[in-house]
Amino acid sequence: MGRHSKPSAPRRIPSSSLVLAMLAAPAAAVIAAGADVHRQAEPIAAPAPVPPPVPEAPPYDLEVVASGPTAGPADLKTAGTVSVASWKVADRAVRQALPTGVASERGLQVKTILAARAISAVFPEIQQIGGVRADALRWHPNGLALDVMIPNPTSAEGIALGNQIVAYVIKNAERFGMQDAIWRGVYYTPNGPRGSGNGHFDHVHITTTGGGYPTGSETYFR
């Protein structure tokens, strides 16, 4: 053969090693397949999305505002705008219109009318209020004075009622344009009693500053 060596015979793998290799391959495939099946049967759930926070509802305000022209003062409000939670009313000086009272309003000036209507509304016991009449002084003839007649004026109830009317007129002196009042001999001004000996034991005499004669378009508010 010369210098060339004889080719070596192919190396034989022991039969035991071949058997182990053949057994190991299917086992690995089964393990891998099993892992895949497990992942498919029980997938990992993604985190649930977090909902956005619910905005807080704004406070609910029911505000009384003007809905159109009114017959009363400019600050008189009559309708409403709505905005969501507490039903809070912002009062805008809603006032009640006064009906005609027991006094005849012929010849009375506007502040005198207001006083007469308010007294009729607040004191339903009063059934007669005098207004314009002939007199030596100018108050009654000019529509500036009222005579509020007191039922049973000498009784305790009558005296108490007259006292209440005087107190009510003084409390509302600015609104009524009160100049003075006389009751059971006492002369009153908006600042209280100012003298005695003036008669008027059966009625409360009230004098106002007038405010002018009505035009017929006035609305009087309590």
Rank of each mutant, 00 (worst) to 15 (best):
R3I: 04
R3A: 05
S16G: 09
V19K: 15
V19F: 10
L20V: 14
A21T: 06
A25N: 01
A28Y: 02
A29P: 00
A33Y: 11
H38M: 09
A41C: 02
E42M: 07
A45S: 13
P47W: 05
P49H: 00
P53Y: 10
V54W: 08
A57V: 10
A57G: 11
A57R: 12
Y60A: 15
Y60N: 12
L62N: 11
S67A: 14
S67G: 15
T70R: 11
A71I: 15
A79T: 09
A79S: 14
A79R: 05
A79W: 00
V82M: 13
V82H: 12
A85G: 12
A90F: 09
S104V: 09
K111A: 00
R117V: 02
A118F: 08
S120R: 03
V122E: 12
I126A: 06
G131S: 10
G131C: 11
A134G: 15
L137I: 00
R138G: 08
R138V: 08
H140T: 08
N142Q: 15
L144K: 04
L144Q: 08
A145D: 01
L146G: 05
M149Q: 09
E157M: 07
G158Q: 10
A160Q: 08
L161F: 07
L161P: 05
L161Q: 10
Q164D: 12
I165N: 03
V169W: 01
G177K: 05
M178V: 12
Q179N: 14
I182Y: 03
W183I: 04
V186Q: 06
V186F: 02
Y187A: 11
Y188I: 07
P193W: 05
R194D: 15
G195A: 04
N198C: 06
F201M: 03
H205K: 10
H205T: 07
I206K: 05
T207F: 05
T207A: 15
G210E: 03
G212Y: 01
G212T: 01
P214Y: 08
F221P: 00
R222S: 13
